[in-house]
């Protein structure tokens, strides 16, 4: 019955609703942006009311939160974490640094454009983005999920070679398990 296309659609709608209501975040505290997460989660802004909740390990997480600048050294770990997450999964680029390098635009060892290496679903602009923007970002992500448009993981799978090529440019000694799901 699942194979049936229409019923699959209905299931998808319900599932997407559930997914958007329940966002488990793996906050990868790569940069200074991590400091904005606690206010987002605690009493003033209380992201939990939106179903946003921290996850401890990538296996359980839905959303990978890249909080701020990403150094070339950290990239490998981030990729690893992303690949360990289970589908469906999403990436939020947090802060200007993930968009264009921000204040590190001319640094030799930061990733300027995160999207070249990981499929970012939602960017949150700002340096730092205030908790309000973070919440707005989550809202956007929820919207995308609800519409079934947050398909970064699919994009990553389809364009894996391109992503890999970009990643390997940054990471010279590439020893990673094969990503094949």
């Amino acid at each position: 019955m699942i194979n049936d296309k229409n019923s699959q659609k209905i299931v998808d709608i319900i599932q997407n609703w559930a997914r958007k209501q329940s966002i488990w975040v793996l906050a990868y505290g790569t940069g200074c942006g991590a400091i904005e997460i606690p206010p987002t989660m605690t009493s003033r802004y209380d992201a939990e009311r939106l179903g946003v909740r921290g996850a401890a390990t990538p296996r359980q997480a839905d959303v990978l939160l890249i909080t701020g600048y990403l150094t070339t050294k950290t990239l490998k770990r981030v990729i690893r974490v992303y690949e360990q997450m289970q589908d469906p999964k999403y990436v939020i680029g947090f802060g200007s640094c993930t968009i264009n390098g921000g204040m590190y635009y001319d640094s030799y060892n930061t990733i300027k454009v995160l999207d070249k290496y990981l499929p970012v679903d939602v960017y949150i602009n700002g340096c730092m983005p205030r908790p309000e923007s973070v919440l707005a970002g989550f809202g956007k992500l929820q919207e995308l999920i609800g519409n079934g448009e947050a398909n970064g993981a699919t994009k990553y799978k389809e364009n894996l070679e391109w992503y890999r090529a970009n990643q390997k440019k940054i990471i010279p000694n590439w020893v990673m398990p094969e990503y094949n799901w």
């Binding site: 990868y28 390990t57 990538p58 296996r59 490998k76 770990r77 981030v78 690893r80 974490v81 360990q84 020893v175 990673m176 398990p177």
Partner: peptide, 10 residues
């Protein structure tokens, strides 16, 4: 069992 979540390290 090497493929575990250990802070992103492999």
């Amino acid at each position: 069992t090497k493929d575990i979540s250990s802070s992103g390290e492999i």
